[in-house]
Design a protein around this nucleic acid. Structure first.
Length: 627
RNA sequence: GCCGAUGUAGCUCAGGGGUAGAGCAGCUGUUUCGUAAACAGCAGGCCGUGGGUUCGAAUCCCACCAUCGGCUCCA
């Protein structure tokens, strides 16, 4: 049993509170208890590391979802053996069952205390912490401080055994209450997340009340690994990467390409129905184009080097916007034709640092489901609303019903990073905010997250395991129309500047399909499955009937095949199961005689013999319903 | 890009200074079978790439590339 946590009322370290706040279900008592346990485990780990590496400097050590970490500055890099040794020492410390105790120190006292121990990161934390508390600015490290107010502030410290740490708490009562721990991995992490500051060694671990809960967690991790789209991509033959092509450049294999084309076809039909006009644009454009668009000033580090031909410089496109602007601009536009909505599955190339590549979720070449909408000021609200309507329809059809939404706005402290005047930024933010509210979508404001040409809505899809995936982005762009001098002739006969909405609803086909794979664990709903039905003849003499069954399905547009190998049905079923094919139609003497098929579902359910026509209807109905 | 780990057959992995091993997949043959793996045989690798050490390197050292776990960044 977990005893009552040590009480703590002092305003504490910003970081631990932030972590707690970002963890779901914090109001749940058991969640608070487990967070307390894990945070205490981090202290135990720090004690163990200090016992083994007396000179170690400590960074921060919060509880995180499913575990905890602590950052250390150590004289040498840790090896897997070190991890074992640290874990063993932690088990000892937990067995010592030392009580956690709290005391407070004045700011100056605390500073000299940690200076005396050469714990410079702790010193920095106190300096930041006390000013934050006084100034009420939780996220600001720097900032002017009121000396008088600071002098009176206090910080809390927690001790267990021979180890004392700056900490807001709360903690468990004794080290024995930490529970069952396991260290998972070591990773480099920049101090305060800043790549210009020292890199520390971060040890990740997890802690649970009992061994069986730890085992259950490790089992869940294993299950999650089985859903990894990179694993499934290989197993199901969906896509591949090749050393001969280059990192971050996926190739779609047979079934992956089929899946992708199903997604694309559906996307195109829905966009046409929503009043979009499809356009095509080239992969490269003259350097001057990217100058005009502002990409060379604001996006160059993500762009590939110029291609020189005939004394002209071209650059590979990292975005599709400038091309769509050209389509709009090719002739004078009337206010009567607005809104104009161009869409394109546009393949872009962006340089991404090698260490950030991750299967289909982070690549160097990807195809955005892109669109640019040009409209009058009085149409802007309706257009953004229309984008959300279409988005919701798509996401729901693909099986995503929960979203995590951010309204990304400028960093007010650094407006020089952005193009365009204040008034338009304020206007753009207001339009996005109104659209979210009118759809009753909850969102959080994210300052400093806007792109250089406008504020945006970033929408993350929440998958079957509760994980969030950044896919959608909806941006109001007041800047590119200006740069390319877009205009339309208004009712008054004068030129007016159109507004522009830039949006990708699935994000990129690569990432979206990666997310689809993980969400469904490779077992796609029938309308998406590359092979929707497979006919399994019991013996070779049933191959003829099997092929007629297959034809009955393919004639109705079902993606079906037959497994006519000289294998036993058991083997054919096993292979079909592993390929996660939704429908298996077993046919033998009885079925051939009666004109039926014995229907087995991917779930393992055996529905028995069903008249062929009914099987076909059942499958086509399900495909049509996109269920 | 930064920190760490890893790289052996299509896949999963063993081996480890003296000219490469298993299972599955593949191919061939036999089997004709009723809801998650029939049997036998064959074939398959410049041990990520390039240097170095050595009589000899897949094995040791260095560099690079890629992948994995994180950090930072993002569709």
């Amino acid at each position: 049993m977990l005893r009552h946590p040590v009480e703590c009322a002092t305003p504490g370290l910003v970081w631990s509170e932030q972590r707690m706040a970002t963890t779901p279900h914090t109001h749940d008592t058991t969640a608070v208890e487990i967070q307390t346990r894990r945070h205490s485990a981090a202290h135990v780990m720090a004690e163990a590391v200090l016992e083994l590496f007396p000179g170690a400097r400590l960074g921060i050590g919060p509880a995180i979802e499913d575990g905890f970490y602590y950052d250390f500055d150590l004289p040498r890099t840790l090896t897997p053996d070190d991890l074992i040794a640290i874990e063993a020492r932690m088990v000892e410390i937990i067995a010592r069952n030392a009580p956690f105790s709290r005391r407070t120190l004045g700011r100056e006292e605390a500073l000299s205390h940690f200076r005396g121990q050469s714990q410079s990161f702790k010193v920095e934390l106190i300096e930041a912490l006390t000013s934050d508390v006084v100034m009420g600015a939780r996220d600001t490290l720097a900032g002017s401080s009121d000396a008088a107010a600071l002098a009176g502030s206090e910080v809390s410290l927690f001790r267990q055994g021979g180890f004392e740490d700056l900490c807001a708490g709360p903690h468990v009562a004794r080290t024995g209450d930490v529970g069952v721990i396991k260290l998972l991995r070591v990773a480099g992490a920049y101090w305060r997340g800043d790549e210009h500051r020292p890199q520390l060694q971060r040890i990740y671990g997890t802690a649970w009340p009992t061994q069986s809960e730890l085992d259950a967690y490790l089992w869940r991790q294993e299950e999650a690994r089985k859903r990894d789209h990179r694993r499934l991509g290989i197993d199901l033959g969906l896509f591949l990467f090749s050393d001969q092509i280059g990192a971050g450049l996926p190739i779609w294999g047979e079934d992956g390409a089929l899946l992708r084309s199903v997604v694309e076809d559906f996307w195109k039909v829905e966009h046409r129905a929503a009043g979009y006009q499809y356009v095509y644009s080239p992969a490269i454009g003259l350097t001057d184009l990217w100058n005009t668009s502002g990409h060379l000033s604001f996006y160059r580090e993500n762009m590939y080097a110029p291609i020189v031909m005939d004394e002209q410089q071209f650059m590979l496109k990292p975005m599709n916007c400038p091309f769509h602007l050209q389509v709009f601009n090719r002739r004078t536009r009337s206010y009567r034709e607005l809104p104009i909505r161009y869409n394109e599955l546009g393949t872009v190339y962006r340089y991404e640092p090698a260490g950030t590549l991750h299967g289909l979720l982070r690549t160097r070449g990807f195809t955005q489901d892109d669109s640019h909408i040009f409209c009058r000021p009085d149409q802007l609200d309706a257009e953004v609303n229309g984008v959300l309507d279409l988005g919701l329809k798509l996401w729901k059809t693909f099986g995503f019903h929960d979203y995590h939404i951010e309204l990304a706005v400028r960093d007010p402290a650094n407006t020089s990073k952005y193009l365009g005047d204040d008034e338009r930024w304020v206007q753009a933010e207001a339009v996005l905010e109104r659209a979210l509210k009118s759809h009753n979508l909850e969102y959080v404001r994210a300052e400093g997250e806007a792109v250089f040409y406008g504020p945006k809505i970033d929408l993350k899809l929440v998958d079957a395991l509760g994980r969030r995936w950044q896919c959608t982005t909806i941006q109001v762009d007041f800047n590119l129309p200006e740069r390319f001098d877009l205009s339309y002739i208004g009712e008054d006969g004068a030129h007016h500047r159109p507004f522009m909405v830039h949006r990708a609803l699935l994000g990129s086909l690569e990432r979206f399909i990666g997310v689809l794979i993980e969400n469904y664990g490779g077992a796609f709903p029938t309308w998406l499955a590359p092979t929707q039905a497979i006919v399994l003849p019991v013996a070779d003499r049933h191959n003829g009937y099997a092929e007629s069954v297959e034809r009955a399905l393919t004639d109705r547009g079902v993606r079906a095949s037959s497994d006519v190998r000289s294998e036993r049905v058991n083997a054919k079923i096993r292979d079909a199961q592993l390929r996660k094919i939704p429908y298996m139609l077993v046919v033998g003497d009885r079925e051939a005689e009666a004109g039926t098929a014995s229907l087995r579902l991917r779930s393992g359910d055996n529905l028995g013999a069903i008249a062929l026509a009914d099987v076909v209807t059942r499958i086509t109905d399900e495909i049509d319903a996109k269920a």
